[in-house]
């Protein structure tokens, strides 16, 4: 028998904190490419490597939000190109499910998103990061008093 208590998260600064769960086969490689191409994207986006977006679980996003993230996105392979057949399809369903749950507690579902891209789309990776960063910055901090 164990009990868990939410730990209080460190306060994000004025800039939003964003966690991106990236599939190793596509988005993570695309991030590498963006780096080697010296493309700029917001440093507030912190990348978490996952073996496939099929590994993404709603609790990962919830913990991130609880512990101080202002937005979370999941980036997987293009639909039809998942290395594990349908990991990205499942991830999209989970993202859509969690969007509704977030809405039910008054959190803008736009703080969560699912993106699809291929390993060769370095510029697209930078674009997604910038776009999502802009969206979350506009929404403001998630917690009144983090």
């Amino acid at each position: 028998m164990t009990t868990q208590t939410a730990e209080n998260a460190p306060a994000p600064g004025r800039e939003p904190r964003i966690i991106a769960f990236c599939c190793q086969y596509c988005a993570y490689s695309a991030a590498d490419m963006a780096g080697s191409m010296r493309l700029q994207y917001p440093p507030e986006v912190e990348i978490v490597l996952i073996p496939c977006t099929g590994r993404f679980d709603v609790i990962l996003a919830l913990r991130a939000l609880e512990k101080g993230a202002d937005g979370v996105y999941v980036a997987g392979c293009l639909e039809g190109n998942c290395h594990f057949l349908d990991g990205n399809i499942r991830a999209r369903k989970r993202v859509n499910y969690l969007k509704k749950e977030l809405e039910s507690v008054g959190i803008d579902p736009g703080r969560l998103e699912m993106y699809n891209l291929s390993a060769s789309q370095g510029p697209r990776f930078a674009e997604i990061a910038a776009e999502f960063y802009g969206r979350v910055r506009d929404l403001g901090p998630l917690h009144k008093n983090p």
């Binding site: 164990t2 868990q4 749950e101 008054g106």
Partner: peptide, 23 residues
């Protein structure tokens, strides 16, 4: 886990004092 997290998030975003423990 999911429900507890949602309830905590809900409280935290509005700076409401709420602890939700899980078992």
């Amino acid at each position: 886990e999911i429900l507890a997290s949602l309830l905590r998030l809900d409280a935290k975003k509005d700076d409401v004092d709420l602890t939700v423990d899980e078992l």
